[in-house]
Each structure stands twice: as C-alpha cells, then as structure tokens.
C-alpha cells in the first residue's frame, strides 16, 4: 500500500512537471504547426542556468538571497533564450516548407546540447537545493519531498492563469485567432510575429518553472537530460490533443503516472517504449487526441 502511494505520488509530481513542458509544445504547435524539438533542451538549459547562476551569485549576494535571485534570473534568461531562438531560427523560415522549420528546430536542439556539453565539460552538474521544496515531508506514511506536493498545486494555478490569459486578454485572443487560421489572422491586422514571440515566451517561462520542479527531484543535470522529458511531454501533448491546454495537462498526468508505475515494476526498461507505443496507438486510433479539434484537409 505504502509502495503504491509513493509510486502514485511520484507519478503525479512527474506528470505535473511534464504538463508544464507539454503546454509549451502544444501552444507552439497550435500556432506554427511546428514540433519545437528544441523545447526539451530549453528546459535543460533552464536547469543549467540555475546551477551556474547560484554558484555565481553565491559570491556576491548574502546566502539567503542567492536562491530567490538565482531563480528569478534563471527564469528571465530562459524566457530570453526562447524568444531569441524563435527570432533567429524559426522566423526566417516562416514561408519555408514545414520540414525546413522542423529541421531547424532539430539543429537548435543539437546546438543547445553541444553548448551545454561545452559549458559543463560533459560532467553532471549538481542541482542546488531550493529551500522549501527540497525538504522532506510525510504524506499518508510515505516520506517524500515537498516538491511532490507543490508541483500539482503550482500546475493547477499556472494553468488557470494561462487559461485566463488566453480566453480573456487581447494577446490571448490573437493567439487563438492565429491558431485557427494563420493567414486570415494576419489579414485582420494581428501582428503575427508578436503573437508568436509571446507564445515562445510563455512556453519558455513554463519550461523554466518545470525545470526547477523536475531537477529538484534529481541529483544532477547532464546535457542530454532535457531530450527525453521533452519527448515525453510532447507525447503527452499529442495524447491530450495537440493545441489544447487542458488536453496537454491531462495527457501529461497520465503519461507521468504510467511512467512512474512502469518504472516501479520489473518492466522498468520499457517505460519509454510504453510512452511511445501509446503515442503510436493514439495517433492511429484517434489522431486528434483526447481533447483535440478535428481538422479537415481541404484539397
């Protein structure tokens, strides 16, 4: 029983972290029809930034201020990174075939991974302890980190805020319009580049928050630690119906819990295989996912 609870808890927390990444995928895909392969690596870079910023700030600031300042700076820099990636690597290819943009995304992912390898020298980096969420609590007799409890709450809060943003603000309306029909939105006077930048900013912000929660559970970061969570989060986004935010969140929790269950069984080596098998099944059986809208292709 205790074992089951601990697995469920870690699954929920993992699911919440995937949800934050998956929203970034789903927003970008909704507007640009692009699988942003670099998103997982942005997530990894956010983690590395946190490592470097805290060790750098540790020399100038009083100890109590190091972590909050580091967190803030890491999130801001990640957002800037997401913005720059979009402007440098995706914007020039706006009129190019979709395949070129996807290749560009793969190129960016390759570049970020190599940059990270260069910066870290390929050595795993210790993630700093974030006070408040790294400590241990006991829930239903199971000891776990506070982050396990904080994650789902934070996810719900952030998703609620995001839904408000998308449904009730001007930027949100522009985003919805762009997702519906890119060209018509442009004709209606929506500044499409600003909208796309906003999407990347939101996505990177959520990825940065997700990285803080995710890496607190793991002892260290390596340059490749972003790629698999990124892919799983993408699967979650597809599972929930790409373009739909609630779908991404639900999908992420399902993926997170099933991964945690499989990792806890004797089939642990198949945890990723299961995720991808699920993806293939979903794509074949119901390509629009759980909450996706049906799109008809007109010739």
């Amino acid at each position: 029983m205790q074992y089951a609870i601990s697995i469920l808890l870690s699954g929920i927390s993992l699911g919440g972290q995937y949800a934050l990444i998956a929203i970034g995928y789903t927003l970008v895909y909704g507007i640009l029809r692009l699988i942003n392969f670099a998103h997982g690596d942005v997530f990894m870079v956010a983690g590395l930034l946190m490592v470097y910023l805290t060790s750098f700030l540790g020399g100038i600031l009083p100890p109590a201020a190091v972590i909050p300042a580091g967190l803030l700076l890491a999130v801001v820099l990640t957002v800037v990174l997401g913005f720059v990636i979009e402007r440098a690597a995706y914007k020039p290819l706006r009129t190019a075939p979709r395949m070129s943009v996807m290749i560009s995304a793969i190129g960016v992912s390759y570049l970020l991974q190599n940059l990270a390898t260069y910066a870290t020298g390929g050595l795993p980096q210790m993630y700093p302890e974030v006070p408040g969420i790294s400590s241990t609590v006991t829930i239903l007799g199971v000891p776990t980190k506070v982050v396990t409890v904080v994650t789902p709450i934070l996810v719900v809060v952030l998703v609620a805020a995001l839904t408000q943003l998308i449904n009730h603000t001007k930027v949100g309306m522009a985003m919805r319009a762009a997702a519906k029909d890119f060209e018509t939105a442009q004709l209606m006077g929506i500044r499409i580049n600003a909208v796309i930048s906003a999407t990347f900013v939101i996505g990177s912000f959520l990825a940065a928050v997700g990285s803080v929660l995710y890496f607190t559970n793991y002892p260290s970061i390596v340059p490749l630690s972003g790629s698999l969570p990124g892919l799983r989060a993408f699967v979650a986004a597809v599972f929930g119906g790409i373009g739909s935010i609630p779908g991404a969140v639900v999908g992420a929790f399902i993926i997170g819990i099933s991964e945690s269950v499989i990792k806890g069984s004797s089939w642990s080596i198949f945890s990723d295989a299961f995720t991808f098998a699920l993806l293939i099944v979903i794509l074949v059986a119901k390509p629009t996912g759980l909450f996706g809208e049906k799109v008809t292709d007109k010739v």
């Binding site: 029809r33 692009l34 699988i35 979709r98 395949m99 996807m102 892919l231 993408f234 699967v235 597809v238 990723d272 295989a273 995720t275 991808f276 098998a277 993806l279 293939i280 794509l283 074949v284 390509p287």
Partner: peptide, 19 residues
C-alpha cells in the same frame, strides 16, 4: 504508421526507434 502525415509520422517513427 504510414497512415500518418508529415510531423506525426516523424514523431511516430522516432518513438519506434526508442521502442
């Protein structure tokens, strides 16, 4: 898998590699 189009095909085959 071949019933899928463009990027869905890409991600499905990518998943196949992992499996």
């Amino acid at each position: 898998v071949l019933r899928l189009k463009s990027d869905y095909l890409a991600i499905a085959t990518l998943g196949f590699g992992e499996i």
